[in-house]
Design a protein around this nucleic acid. Structure first.
Lengths: 145, 145
DNA sequence: ATCATTTTGAGATAGCTTATCAATTTCAAC
DNA sequence: GTTGAAATTGATAAGCTATCTCAAAATGAT
């Protein structure tokens, strides 16, 4: 099974921990491993997922660790509905969201042309893009009567 | 002072009410008037704002009414931080944002090509876009060493 | 191995939104 | 203008998500 021990994300995390006098714990490794397998996930979902193998992992720890990943630049929090989605930044840019305001249906999409134009806009303004967020809100075919 | 009595938003609301056997109340008129003066607002903020003139208007009524406006297509809920922003759909100020993760600087931009591509994506998926949100995160020229 | 420091887990707490329900208001039919 | 069934309101309780608290445990530099 693939370990995150040597992944570049694990290196990023270790750097962040060192820079802020934080410690590498079993839980942080565990949660990073699980997180890297997702494109995005909620703390609650990760809690239930990890409970199968680690029943004593606390929900607060999951929240704390996912927020730590945000600080380290590995994750990005996105408020969605009543919950917070933690996006895996290494997958970011590969899917944006179409959200139906009628029924809440979510369709993921990716569009290289849009991403290229985003780069153009950024370059024109002297920016170097790290991540982005694109959400289109509207009515899906079933809600659009 | 401009009244919403004859505004097209009031007409939209009345249509929605009629269609769903709902009633036009003093509170709904009041809240619509206040809402139309905003580009976006939270329920809490509107509660405090209206409390000055109508101290007995309940917070639950504000929430219910703003959600009603969403159903009627006048407003759009957007989760931001821990709160819900209710956007005034008629003020479609379509500026997107470039946000520097180094210094927090925000640059507004608009790009017709991106918007056209968004429409394409939406159409391809059977969606009709009401609003969108595009945020590019990165480093500005001064923070990019 | 030691020990100051950080982290964890479990539950309490906080913040935002919705549900409950008796009293009030609306509005269509008289 | 009255009436009365149905919808709405206000106050508060309840529900959910996320954070805080703190004693116990784990980490990692020495």
């Amino acid at each position: 099974m693939a370990s995150s021990k040597n992944s570049k994300e694990m290196e990023t995390l270790k750097e962040h921990l060192a820079k802020h006098q934080l410690k590498l714990t079993r839980q942080r490794e565990l949660i990073l491993n699980a997180f890297l397998r997702q494109e995005h996930i909620t703390a609650e979902a990760m809690y239930h997922q990890l409970a199968k193998t680690d029943p004593h992992l606390g929900l607060a720890t999951i929240y704390r660790t996912l927020n730590l990943f945000c600080d380290a630049g590995l994750a990005q929090a996105r408020h969605f509905g009543s919950q917070t989605q933690y996006d895996n930044v290494s997958h970011k840019g590969h899917h944006d969201h179409l959200i139906c305001t009628g029924c809440g249906k979510i369709v993921e999409f990716e569009n290289c042309d849009i991403e290229r134009l985003q780069e153009e806009v950024a370059t024109r303004n002297g920016f170097t893009i790290q991540t982005h967020r694109l959400e289109l809100y509207g009515l899906c075919s079933r809600c659009h009567h």
